[in-house]
Design a binder for these strands. Structure first.
Lengths: 204, 204
DNA sequence: CGCGGTTTTGAGTTCTATCAATAATTGTGG
DNA sequence: CCACAATTATTGATAGAACTCAAAACCGCG
């Protein structure tokens, strides 16, 4: 564990290799997964103001983490406007990512959520020079389900379905995206909004 | 409308009287409601880094809004560390509020969501010296449902149910909280986690 | 008073959670 | 290294929560 919710903030962190998840204490025992962090991504921004961590950060696998001591950073920031701006920028990026999650949790159904999750991961891997179509999930199905607000079984079923539909090739934690276009379309607004016809006896 | 998503950020705003909602463009035409702002609460923080608004802000009723020009503010902040810190603090508060919403949308069912929403409003009114038990909702059922990730009909039914259960007294937009304790308990982790028994023929 | 909009209520359907059981994988000690 | 236990993942059956469609009730307003 990198740090725990509530601890005094001694440093910020950047993932060098491996991956990290951040969690907040949920309602009933189980904590809520709030984000996954891949190489190059900064962790702990949310605690800057309170001088204590707002999340708990756990590594998902053997990882190399770069530690940025907090005090020197803020002191430097007071004299370096560019650094100051960069910190704002990172904070604000976090905020916008969370807004995306609000949209996902509030308006998307299960398949859209998983598709969004996978496309997002894909893009982030791609941005780091890694393969955008073939990667391994460092987090468990359980973590994914928690993050996406679904049941583990739903995630499992969706992986099976996506594979059956030729969107993915899934082998345990190894993912290969076969049809990124369809996946992306599925993740956002489907061109044809699910034309659900019930009351089918009322057809004209 | 106060400002629109994407516009250059000219000022931050603080609600003096009335109320405001912020929205982001959703997937299918309809935009997603991301927050409601009551008197005393600051709007527009999310855009600080990009120098442009990340949300659209719409007033919900006749309101008095205080405008804080952006440039002077940031310039002042570079020389006033206390102001700088205050800005971080507000940004970070926004972040934590959103985390709460992630929890709500990801793990709570409909009744818990509405109960959370009402207790939150109640507390915020109370903090401003207004009645915490009796207030009027400035937003439509539709806005509430959008914000909470539910259907309008569900909101309506829940208001009816809460009233039938003696939790609230609802008259159109007038709300009177009759049992704030029960409401609060409902909003978080119920003491007895919903003991749903299906397969009831298997009872011992 | 009649009209558009919002809210409420009702009926039926769908999606996803839950329960249950099995299979696959990982970890552990002999 | 293998057998066993323990976790994690998959698959199936069922139930329940919430959505959709539909229509009525209610409200504000010209």
């Amino acid at each position: 564990m990198l740090f725990r919710h509530g601890e005094p903030l001694r440093a910020l962190y950047v993932v060098k290799t491996g991956s990290v998840k951040t969690c907040a204490p949920g309602m009933n025992a189980e904590e809520q997964v709030l984000g996954f962090y891949l190489p190059g991504e900064p962790i702990g921004l949310g605690g800057i103001a309170q001088h204590c961590h707002s999340r708990t950060a756990r590594v998902l696998e053997t990882s190399a983490i770069c530690e940025i001591p907090y005090l020197p950073l803020t002191q430097l920031a007071t004299t370096l406007p560019a650094l100051q701006r960069q910190l704002y920028h990172l904070l604000s990026r976090e905020l916008n990512q969370q807004s995306e999650m609000l949209l996902l949790l509030g308006r998307k159904h299960a398949a859209e959520r998983l598709a969004t999750f996978l496309t997002d991961l894909s893009q982030r891997f791609g941005r780091r020079g890694l393969s955008a179509t073939e990667f391994t999930l460092s987090m468990s199905r359980h973590d994914i389900s928690n993050y996406l607000g679904l049941a583990v079984e739903t995630i499992s079923r969706l992986f099976s379905r996506f594979q059956a539909d030729g969107l993915l090739q899934v082998d345990r934690k190894q993912i290969k995206i076969l049809n990124s276009v369809a996946l992306k379309r599925l993740s956002g607004a489907p061109v044809t909004p699910p034309p659900r016809r019930h009351r089918s006896h009322q057809q004209s």
